[in-house]
Every structure is written in structure tokens, then in C-alpha cells.
């Protein structure tokens, strides 16, 4: 039995391998309200745990808490948009999607409501088990017509999406990275809606990744270099609208494709990539890294992410094992 344990609510894992920023979402939300003045942050009893207190303290008259009531969260947000405000909602993704699906679909997306849902605890970023881990949220949200779906990688991208979201027409579902969020990209990075971004030039392996898996893939690229493998990464920050052309072009430039997502391997990035590549006639050997088709137990994040193959180290190992298995048997 490991001496690691599931962390308490609000307790944060240590980040040792790279710099991090605290509450980048609040930074972006405050910046956009400073510019526009029409942002209202609404939360459902998770203000403290979705990093909105800095916003609340800066703009107390623009902060409302509906209590544990996700359906009210989403309908009130839709109504605020009818009155000309822009609602930035926060809760956990598991609750936003599972508890308020009809409301996000009909009260928001159907009427093109200017509602932005920032949904915490995506995939295995919480150790609280199946109830709290939003492992299928991208699949659920991208199936809604007119919904924009974003899965940011790091603190830089999180803050930029928060700042840009008000300008994106209609309803947006964005995975929320909260607490101490790693800084992976440099300050020159610019999030562009619907546009995948390439990192590196290696062509042996092309990682296509979203969310925090891009961080893990970038680290795996370094590790694979020691094995003589040159890889590159295509970060897909926007799940919908999906950059199918960019994905196909990238895949055509590499020998093998590895998809990586902090999401169940049903209906998320892997499904999108498979679809895009088949339709474009780009058939490459492909390995898919993601959460298996099952509910995940409670545990510490290093334990869970290692067990389910989402750490940089495990990404590298899975790629090497896949390459070994595929290697031609030497002629005798």
C-alpha cells in the first residue's frame, strides 16, 4: 500500500518539474471584465475551488453564488446573457455536464446564449473518484450543436481562454485548470480558437494531444530523443470547432500518430482524430492514450495518472512498447 493518499478538498499536488501560476483563470476573467465591464461570475458552491475568489474580491457586485444548484447556475446564466451580460459559470465538469446537460443544450446552446462554462476537475485532475472526475465531458459537450469546447493545456492558455471567451460567440464549455497550474508554454503562445498548434519538427512520432496531456507529450518527446526517436506535438486546444485540416496535415508529415487525452477513449480527441484522418485518407499507424472505458477509483493524482498511463514517463513507455511490438522480426 502506497503512503500517498487522496488529497483533501482544495489541497494541491506539488509541482516540482516546472514553474506554475496560481489561479490563472481568475487573472483572465478579471482582465476581460476590466476591459468590458459586463462579466458576471456565477458559481454553484464551488467558488473557492474554482479559483474565482480573486474576481469576487475585485468585482463583488459581479459575483453570484447560486448554491448547489447546477440547473439554476446554467439557466440564470442564460438569462443574464439575455439581459446583455456575459456569464462566466464555474463548477466541476462532472456536475456541469451530467447535472445540467439539458440546460446547457437548450437554455444556452440552442439560443446561442452568451454563456461560458468553466468546468473544473477535468479527467484525472482530482482524486475524488467517479463522482468528481469529468472523464466524458468533452464527448458530451461536443455532441451539442453550436457548442464551443476547449481543453487548455497550461496556465498561459487557461488565462488566455478566460480572457478571450467573452468574445467567442455563443456558448462555450472550457475545462478549468485550477490551483497551481503548470506553465508549459512561453509568453509568445497565443490561443487561437479552432486552431491546433505544432511544437517541434520530429517526424518519427507525431503526438496529437489536448489539455494537460500536451505537457506530458512535450516531456515525452525529450525522453524519446534518448532512444533515437524524433517526435513532435500538435496541441489541440479547441475540441470544437475541430481543426480537422490541421490534424490531417500534421499526420501526413509524420510516420506514426499517438493521440493523448485526459478523457475517456470514447467520443473525445481520439475519436475526432480517427474520424478526421480516415476522412482525409491519411492512414497512419496510431496509438491512443487516454482513460479506459470504466469509472476510476479514488487516489492520489500521481498514483492515478501513473496507473492510467497519463504521466510523461508512462506516455514514453507506452510509445516504446508500441514501437517494439510493431517492430519487424529480424530475418534469420
Amino acid at each position: 500500500m502506497s503512503d500517498r493518499r487522496t488529497l483533501g478538498m482544495g489541497e494541491l499536488e506539488k509541482i516540482e518539474n516546472r514553474p506554475f501560476e496560481k489561479a490563472p483563470f481568475a487573472r483572465g476573467a478579471m482582465a476581460v471584465n476590466k476591459k468590458r465591464g459586463d462579466i458576471v461570475v456565477l458559481t454553484a458552491d464551488l467558488g473557492k475551488y474554482t479559483d474565482v475568489y480573486p474576481f469576487r474580491d475585485a468585482y463583488p457586485e459581479h459575483y453570484y453564488n447560486v448554491g448547489m444548484a447546477e440547473q439554476a447556475l446554467v439557466t440564470v446564466a442564460a438569462g443574464l446573457s439575455h439581459a446583455g451580460m456575459v456569464a462566466y459559470c464555474t463548477t466541476y465538469g462532472a456536475f456541469a455536464t451530467r447535472r445540467a446537460y439539458d440546460f446547457l443544450a437548450i437554455a444556452c446552446a440552442h439560443g446561442n446564449a452568451n454563456v461560458k462554462m468553466f468546468a473544473g476537475n477535468p479527467g484525472l485532475t482530482t482524486g475524488y473518484g467517479g463522482t468528481h472526475q469529468a472523464i466524458e465531458d468533452l464527448a458530451l459537450m461536443r455532441a451539442i450543436p453550436d457548442m464551443t469546447v476547449i481543453d487548455p493545456c497550461d496556465a498561459i492558455e487557461m488565462a488566455q481562454v478566460a480572457e478571450q471567451a467573452a468574445e467567442i460567440e455563443g456558448t462555450v464549455y472550457c475545462r478549468l485548470l485550477r490551483g497551481n497550474v503548470p506553465v508549459v508554454f512561453d509568453e509568445t503562445y497565443r490561443f487561437e480558437l479552432g486552431k491546433a498548434k505544432r511544437f517541434g519538427t520530429g517526424t518519427d512520432i507525431g503526438f496529437i494531444s489536448t489539455g494537460f496531456m500536451t505537457e506530458r507529450c512535450l516531456d515525452a518527446v525529450q525522453a524519446l530523443r534518448a532512444h533515437g526517436i524524433n517526435a513532435s506535438v500538435l496541441h489541440v486546444g479547441t475540441i470544437k470547432p475541430f481543426d480537422a485540416a490541421g490534424i490531417a496535415e500534421f499526420a501526413q508529415s509524420v510516420d506514426k500518430v499517438v493521440t493523448a487525452e485526459n478523457h475517456i477513449l470514447i467520443g473525445g480527441l481520439t475519436s475526432l482524430v480517427t474520424d478526421a484522418l480516415y476522412r482525409s485518407g491519411t492512414l497512419k499507424p496510431m496509438l491512443s492514450i487516454g482513460i479506459p472505458d470504466r469509472f476510476i477509483e479514488c487516489g492520489s493524482l500521481p498514483y492515478l495518472q501513473t496507473k492510467y498511463g497519463l504521466t510523461a514517463e508512462r506516455v514514453g513507455q507506452q510509445v516504446l512498447a508500441w514501437l517494439d511490438a510493431a517492430a519487424p522480426v529480424a530475418a534469420t
Partner: peptide, 13 residues
């Protein structure tokens, strides 16, 4: 819920 949000938004405006 939508009406409540609209009422809140109008007040803020």
C-alpha cells in the same frame, strides 16, 4: 431560472 437571470442582468444594467 432564465427569467431570474434576466431579472438579475437587468438590475446589473
Amino acid at each position: 431560472g432564465i427569467a431570474a437571470g434576466a431579472a438579475l442582468g437587468l438590475r446589473l444594467k
